[in-house]
Design a protein around this nucleic acid. Structure first.
Lengths: 352, 352
DNA sequence: ATTGATTGCACCATCGATTGTGCAATTTTG
DNA sequence: CAAAATTGCACAATCGATGGTGCAATCAAT
């Protein structure tokens, strides 16, 4: 019983077909018909008609009227990292559970793109916005606030809104200890054996740096010299940093704290240019979990940021209307070598 | 010069402020003012006002009127795989270049979610839809067609619309040869040494299976027995398949063609339960590229599906209005062991 | 049988932008 | 200088759904 006319059915079409007014149709179809005292029988009749003509609500019209959209957006620096893609996967699932429509957008860490994208999202009346790793959270916060858009920072904190982030310090401390403890006592290491690569001058990097330094200082019982090489987040820059270190010293540091899985890819690029033996005794600690990265042929421990808890907490705060600029820390999970965690990928509705 | 009232400026606000009519404002702001013979001076004045009051178009209103949205959507089975996340990354970049707004949504390979999601997207008047790995492309095609939504299949072909997919057969052939050729001549292998794990009964798997069989038959100069273990796409099922094989045979096959990077994660889970020595002489060929997966401690070659070309071709076809149900094959890229390709991640606008 | 409450729905303005049409004022043409 | 052409803009209908308000019909109560 499908209309062969190309156009989609509207409440007006159903209005004519049913003999009811458009407002009645509207009420029935959006579920408010009980409050509007539409009789059960008319409701059923209309719902039947709607099914037959496979009516679907025009969300633009509804959105225009109600200035809502049912869309919930996640703003990502990049898609192509297992940290962010697992975040997207979890986000999608959670938003669907809430009966809304999840959309995910990346901005390549470009502040201009970020700003414009948020403006666009606002113009679509997106209901809620999760901002992951914004480079300039505060100006985005201002935008959202002016538009009355519920939003929250994930991963990187902002000064003006609530933020749910990983406990970077705690994670860095654990990771650094695990690197140091990988070396047996008789195989003595010096402060210059342990380096940190990656990151830049953002909150997360600073906290990770602090954890790294504190543990080094505690272990070597002295204020150790600077062994942190910030490279930004792009893999190419990290690669260059490894190359330079290698050229200067003739080898890599014996233990390396890698600031993120994207920086870890910089190490991959370095590895591709050097024989496997170069890495036989390497000890890596990576802040971020990548399942394949956990099985590389050297000692590698990882820290998995708990995206599920972060997303859940974010929605709790949003539902509670909490907009105070507070930062909520989520403890990350320490991941030993050769570990394949189950994750959002297991949400696949697939048959064996 | 910002209005302190919370509400966003509309063309009517600007209309009052400028003394012009709303239609004039509209024309100026959407760029059609020349055709509507609005004088340059009024245009400039209005544009100035718009800037001062930081006007932005309400896309829901525009969309309602013009039944367009400026949104371009990519439907993904899952986010959390480097194949799909690199596809998303490339997609985002391309759509931005076209001045539209990219949105990415995953459906967990759930046909019901897929269908509903497409319905939702239609109700938002999404302009264009790229469908990656739909489980039921044809019913989705029908939906889109009825709604007049421009769409195209990526990755998995549909019978009713145009499809841009990887040349799975060619990729599988190359990959299988590379597995076989990894064994030196004096280290003779038998047909039962080479297995294929993963995939199920979809077009891509069938083509990959065919390539695998053809090469095996050619190499062993005989119709070889069945050595394909379909497991579906979920990592958990693949893991189970490896476990079962191992229990039955006491070892893994010497050479394994893994159907996808997600199945490869099933192998990871298996690996986590067995000592590293188990895998020392393993030869893996994986259909899909994962940078970390390329550095695992055994021989592993991969096939990278060329997402850039796929996306580009898809947009070409869409722009050309090509809606004939034809399948366009994109040759994949063979990736040797220990290779770290640059990719969409390098789009990161980051500073060293 | 009258009054009052309740049921069941229709009417209509509204959200913000787009666009076909009309018309006065100005400029050009002959 | 009158007619024709052009310029510059205003008017109003429209996209599809929402929700406040109003009103007739039915039912209950006195």
């Amino acid at each position: 019983m499908k209309k062969s006319t190309k156009k989609k059915a509207t409440i007006y079409d159903l209005s004519v077909l049913s003999g009811c007014s458009a407002s009645t149709i509207s009420a029935v179809l959006n579920g408010t018909w009980r409050q509007r005292r539409i009789s059960e029988s008319t409701a059923e009749r209309i719902l039947g008609l709607a099914r037959d003509h496979n009516y679907t609500t025009n969300m633009q019209a509804r959105g225009l009227r109600s200035s809502q959209s049912g869309l919930v957006a996640l703003l990502l620096p990049v898609h192509d990292s297992r940290y962010f893609s697992s975040m997207a996967q979890t986000f999608d699932a959670r938003v669907r559970e809430r009966g809304q429509c999840p959309i995910v957008i990346s901005t390549c860490r470009d502040p201009k793109e970020e700003y414009q994208t948020v403006e666009t999202l606002i113009s679509y009346s997106v209901d809620t916005l999760l901002i992951a790793g914004a480079t300039d959270p505060d100006s985005i916060h201002r935008l959202c606030k002016e538009a009355g858009l519920k939003h929250i920072n994930i991963d990187l904190p902002g000064r003006s809104g609530p933020s749910v982030i990983t406990d970077n310090y705690a994670g860095a401390v654990e990771l650094t200890w695990s690197i140091i403890n990988s070396f047996s006592d008789d195989d003595s290491i010096t402060p210059s054996d342990i380096y940190m690569f990656g990151g830049r001058d953002d909150h997360n990097s600073r906290e990770r740096n602090r954890g790294f330094r504190d543990v080094k200082d505690a272990h070597f019982k002295t204020k150790t010299e600077e062994t942190i090489v910030p490279t930004g987040y792009a893999p190419g820059f990290a690669q260059k940093a490894f190359e330079e270190f290698y050229e200067t010293h003739g080898n890599l540091p014996r233990g390396i704290f890698v600031n993120s899985s994207i920086n870890y890819e910089g190490l991959l690029r370095f590895m591709a240019k050097h024989p496997p033996e170069t890495f036989e005794n390497l000890v890596i600690g990576c802040f971020d979990y990548d399942p394949f990265g956990s099985f590389l042929p050297f000692q590698v421990t990882m820290v998995r940021q708990d995206v599920e808890k972060m997303i859940d907490r974010a929605f709790q705060l949003i539902d509670a209307g909490e907009m105070t600029p507070r930062t909520y820390l989520i403890p990350p999970q320490f991941v030993p070598q050769r570990t394949a965690l189950t994750g959002p990928l297991d949400l696949l509705k697939d048959v064996p």
